[in-house]
Design a protein around this nucleic acid. Structure first.
Lengths: 145, 145
DNA sequence: ATAATAACAGTAATCATTACTGATTTAGTT
DNA sequence: AACTAAATCAGTAATGATTACTGTTATTAT
């Protein structure tokens, strides 16, 4: 379908572009709401889906189970997900151009690409004591909110 | 918490072990129901979570958006997700032992591991015409159900 | 300006998953 | 074999992210 301009979509995209973390739809909503107090959460979801379908942003479907994150940086890079606080952090890695071909050798279909998700503990969570790590209400503040 | 034996959990695990595809909780439920007609869907979810927490199976949180898949094969391997039919297929790949160390060079936290998800079209979907691919009610049959 | 239609706000519905409850099963101990 | 504590169960209600619906508004081409 043809994409007609809308102020709301522009605001959503431009907000995403200011962020190095990977906000959820809810976070996008709460921030864009400051500029457009009447914006609807459904509008945010619809536009995030639309932007992702058109390759202008990435939808990251992992991290906290069942909560999508969005990334305006579409250049090739990978992601780290903290198993304690669920923060999603960019991770540069030298290119592995042959990995898709390599994988294709044992595979009958067509491989178009891949994503690598690293997991472990982010810097902030590493510095917490084990007791703090078990308390689920202590959230990492390494991401500007 | 201590794991006490239960027939239901044993049936769930042994069903998963017969499968090379990666069933959802709903698929597990519908099959284990044949042996235990009274089993509850909640019981399936609870035991899948428990088995995954104890490292006896893997929870795969990607594929169809928001639907988890489960895998009784815990040996190191990767996965392919068909972007047309959402089938999840095993994919062997030569080991890349240094990838975590490599990624850690530009990262402040602790990297404990990674997952690689390939995407593209599976063999079955490759053989469909583009028109068929657009019809969402045509499902691939490459997985024994 | 007009008309066609994409997009909106607001709200209801969907659907995978989790939580709750009182009854049952397991497993260790007499 | 009976006893007890705790894990597990079946059944059901609740949760929460996301999507669909509806009547109205904004955008864009003519």
């Amino acid at each position: 379908m043809i994409m007609k301009y809308s102020r709301q979509r522009a605001a959503i995209l431009s907000f995403l572009q200011t962020r190095k973390d990977h906000p959820t739809a809810e976070v996008v909503y709460s921030h864009v709401k400051e500029e457009y107090p009447n914006i609807s959460l459904g509008t945010v979801y619809r536009n995030l889906t639309q932007l992702a379908d058109n390759g202008m942003i990435l939808r990251l479907s992992f991290g906290e189970l069942g909560i999508d994150h969005f990334d305006a940086d579409t250049s090739p890079h990978h992601h780290f997900v903290c198993s304690a606080c669920s923060s999603v952090i960019d991770l540069q890695l030298k290119e592995m151009p042959f990995i898709d071909e390599e994988a294709g050798k044992n595979f009958d279909g067509m491989i178009q690409g891949h994503n690598i998700y690293f997991h472990g503990l982010c810097k902030c969570c590493l510095e917490k004591s084990p007791i703090q790590l078990n308390k689920c209400d202590i959230k990492c503040e390494n991401l500007n909110d």
